[in-house]
Amino acid sequence: MSPTKDAGHLFRFAFLFVVAFAVFLVVRHFVVPRSFGEYGHYRGAAIGEIAARPLHYAGHETCETCHADVAEAKKAGKHATVNCEACHGPLATHAADPSIQPAKLDTAVLCIRCHAISAAKPKNFPQVDADQHAYGLPCETCHKPHSPAIQTGGAK
């Protein structure tokens, strides 16, 4: 008696299994993104896509390539650590095309964002009560924003 005499049902089952596995491989090939698993259990191409998102802030190094004079004035003063776009706003469009003019700034809003008096701020940070300090005068009457210490006499 042959050992494979009654094994036909086993072969049929094995055939089905092989076909199902082949279908699985084909479906998997089309469904799983090409870069999945490139670095780990995720789509590797996503990293490049996130890195390609557009810039809005150009960065102070870019500003300084054209506005070296301002950078120089700022470096000597108290605002040395304040980067250009911290006050001027996002200007990547202006950096890419200098004919696009940035909006004019309002020092009445800008200065007070940082320098309004509050007990919550660090004690060594310069703070003023705008009403009592300037009596409604614009800040830049006395303080030049790029180098805010008062230039002629008075307290620095």
């Binding site: 990293i47 996130i50 890195a51 390609a52 998102r53 557009p54 810039l55 809005h56 802030y57 960065g59 102070h60 190094e61 605002h79 650590t81 304040v82 980067n83 776009e85 911290a86 940082c114 940070f125």
Partner: peptide, 23 residues
């Protein structure tokens, strides 16, 4: 937060660090 991945991969700092006035 992506840690401004589109900036740091280009040698820039993040938008929050770029705009922090006191460092």
């Amino acid at each position: 937060c992506t840690l401004c991945y589109h900036r740091i991969t280009k040698g820039l700092t993040t938008a929050c660090c770029e705009n922090c006035p006191t460092g």
